[in-house]
Design a protein around this nucleic acid. Structure first.
Lengths: 206, 206, 206, 206
DNA sequence: AATGAATGAGCGTTCATTCAT
DNA sequence: TATGAATGAACGCTCATTCAT
């Protein structure tokens, strides 16, 4: 990918994050990049495409990670832990992407929106499936609603973009650990909540 | 409040929800309302004020509810349950307000933003305090991080605006119950996780 | 004239003076007056009429004064002195009217403009005639251009509205005296410039 | 300077002169120029900037000329003559600028107003100083008020914009000569008013 | 006489996009 | 590749004026 294209994305990202997609003009971007309108439109067919690329970079990365974690582990507990941990980490690596992703997706053109939606749905599916499997194999409680629990977990993690600060008191790994701890306490079958049994499950992930 | 003002808000809400604050022009609003530009600006000093009113309606309602629940109950478990249940219900009553609240707050003018932020912070404080108290009185686990757990709960519930549909398979009350169940499993002290003890706690809220 | 009408004029005057006719809205006027839009339009057919009334008040007063001075004196020197002195005094009495008159006349509707122009021309004519007479009867220099000298005098006096301050170091009467002194030095026939002769002319006015 | 920018100024000038700054819309300007709104705003940051540029063009030219005349001559009489003559000439060269300058300065933004005011004050200072010097070295009468006389001269000349027409009976040079004649008669010390002495002073300028 | 909600044409301005160079 | 002048539709907003009450 051309250096200028990269530089445009890197410059636009924090601008979009701070001021929103509509709060930043193409002019402002090209001025800060040090290029021209023509330079911008040589690399992007429209401002919308830039928005799409930002969305796609993030969601593709997340989806890929989730698929890896999904393939690597067998037990649903392990899978879910790995997915959550890797997902949480993304909030440190891609914070501006994510802010833009969640704030501005409404302004994506339908054609772009569709592409993004498909990847989002795939990601969601992986999580739902892990919960479903955990329930069926008896690792998770039998009385949880897969759908709502999945959305609860997604919400808990996704919301991180609203408050996470790299300079905060907890590292992103610690936050991931806490989330995993909360989630497992919430959904693990009672038989695993025995202190020792639980510890062994947790330890098996390290 | 003037009927026209009300009608403008009611008309703008779903438009903002669907197309974003910047995706809807004042012209579009007044056309759909059946009034004129002048009519709009007779009732709102700016498009921004309309955005603010939407924000404020929602956050004021939420804060008031949380304060009531906070005052009504003594035990942290009871408090937290009541707050979460009433909060979740808001996602049914005020869904369009909430979508606009979370999507478009970035476009609020600083003066408006400040007012909103104060109420948000008060609401957050009530939740954090309930968790802190639950930890100190021994109802909640000793090893949870108040701050991160609070944000996790907020995220779990807030995220609802992204997926909740009134026509979905679960009612808003059922969703609230599930969230409470997940949260209590996640943070209640082990001694309450005994099936019976837990049931009695849950039942005491009904 | 109705009290409200008077109050509207008195309120509008300093506003127009400070911010210009276009810098002041009807709303601003009625708010400061303490009446309503309807109240305004009950007394004035339009904002233009208010502008016209302000123009006419001033120019009518000036013209009347000039006609009196013109009728009262016989010698052109005496006439010119009296006209200038009374004209200069108007800049103290009607300063806001005058500022508006000179700044905003461009925005008068043609029909109004015409009425004002006629009175302005009559006033100018009185001055020109005094100069012409002074030249013909030998009191003034023979080599002056009546037209240009008249406009020079008008300019000298009119410009006062740009700088005159009631709290300044000179009173309006002193300024009038100075203007008369400069004018007479500039146009009196040499034979009157003999110190004594000149003094007697000047004294004859007191 | 871009051709379009020049053309916009040249087109706006007579429009502003005839109808006032508020009587002319940007639309009207761009239509008459044969460009677009975008074209206008590519060259001017605002309609205000256009107004400022017109003001500044004129006042900068006048100030520069006055400074040259001030530097070129030694005797206050010579200085004052040169300044007045060059100033009067400007009313032929820059009539539309001047009309706009005096009619619309009230609508300049404070930041622009300040810049203009500084140059106006410098120009005024040059005239005041010439009169002061003439008084001190004995060329001018001892009994004149520098401040009021200065304003009288400024008024006499400035007012020209209200009536001067290029097709009038007097050329701009003749008007300048008449003004100088009137001014010198008004303020020269008596000893120079001897016909011959005066003539020699006047001639020395040619 | 007086009100103030409502009007709607028109304003100054923005900005994604194009295209001759 | 890259430029930046030019476009023009659309924007948020103003305000003199009207009119039902």
């Amino acid at each position: 990918m051309s250096d200028l294209r990269k530089k445009i994305i890197q410059t636009a990202l924090p601008l979009f994050e701070a001021k929103g997609f509509h709060g930043v003009s193409v002019n402002e971007i090209v001025e800060q990049v040090g290029t021209s309108k023509g330079g911008f439109y040589h690399h992007f067919s429209s401002k919308d495409e830039l928005l799409f690329v930002i969305h796609d970079t993030f969601i593709s990365y997340v989806l890929e990670n989730a698929e890896k974690a999904n393939a690597e582990f067998n037990s649903p507990t392990d899978k879910l832990q790995a997915i959550v941990r890797s997902f949480v980490k993304v909030f440190d690596l891609y914070k501006p992407h994510i802010s833009v992703f969640y704030q501005e997706h409404i302004y994506l053109r339908p054609a772009y929106e569709l592409q993004i939606k498909q990847k989002r749905d795939q990601f969601k599916q992986i999580i739902m499936q892990a919960i479903e499997e955990g329930k069926q194999c008896g690792e998770f409680r039998q009385d949880i609603s897969v759908e709502i629990t999945g959305m609860a977990i997604l919400g808990m993690v996704n919301w991180t973009y609203k408050w996470y600060q790299r300079e905060g008191v907890k590292t992103i790994e610690e936050i991931g650990d806490i989330f995993v701890d909360l989630i497992l306490h919430a959904i693990l079958h009672e038989r695993f909540l025995d202190q020792n049994a639980f510890a062994s499950i947790l330890l098996s992930q390290k």
